[in-house]
């Protein structure tokens, strides 16, 4: 893999927990790689699977979806709905041969800034090792 490859990671995060964890990480001056682009959504229940596909289409090398721990959803059950959806969605991606080891899910509460820091660091290293998601980028550029 080329030395200067910097992974593009898109993170869809819940407004009520992981977003605050990332905020707290900043306030606490916790360092982690700048490779992650954070998109704030009201809840993981709002993360339509099409957003994940869209991120890959637009050149992401990895996608992170992160929200509140089970039982902690601001809207009571959004994360439970999301969990069920991902269980099924991952199987579809497996069948289509989409690299599910580039799509990450996590529960990170507003207090867990360290978990956020560690996770993003780890994912960035892992994707840097794996290289860009060339297969998906290729289909995104093919016009026919």
């Amino acid at each position: 893999m080329s030395e200067d490859f910097e992974p593009k990671i898109v993170a869809f995060v819940c407004n009520w927990c992981t977003y605050l964890a990332a905020d707290l990480a900043g306030t606490n001056r916790l360092e982690y790689p700048p490779n992650v682009r954070i998109l704030r959504l009201p809840c993981t229940g709002r993360v339509d699977f099409n957003l994940i596909i869209k991120a890959l289409e637009m050149g992401a090398d990895a996608v992170v979806v992160s929200g509140c721990h089970p039982g902690d959803c601001h809207y009571t059950a959004g994360n439970y709905h999301a969990r069920r959806r991902w269980i099924l969605f991952r199987e579809l991606l497996e069948t289509m041969g989409i690299e599910t080891n580039r799509i990450f899910f996590s529960w990170i509460s507003a207090a867990e800034s360290k978990k956020w820091q560690h996770m993003i660091t780890e994912i960035t290293d892992q994707i840097r090792e794996m290289g860009p998601y060339t297969a998906y980028h290729e289909i995104s550029e093919a016009t026919a």
Partner: peptide, 17 residues
């Protein structure tokens, strides 16, 4: 396009989950 067709087939299938 391949890209959009991929997205369509993911969507069609998953809306049937």
């Amino acid at each position: 396009t391949v890209k959009a067709n991929f997205a369509w087939h993911v969507t069609r299938a998953f809306h049937q989950a």
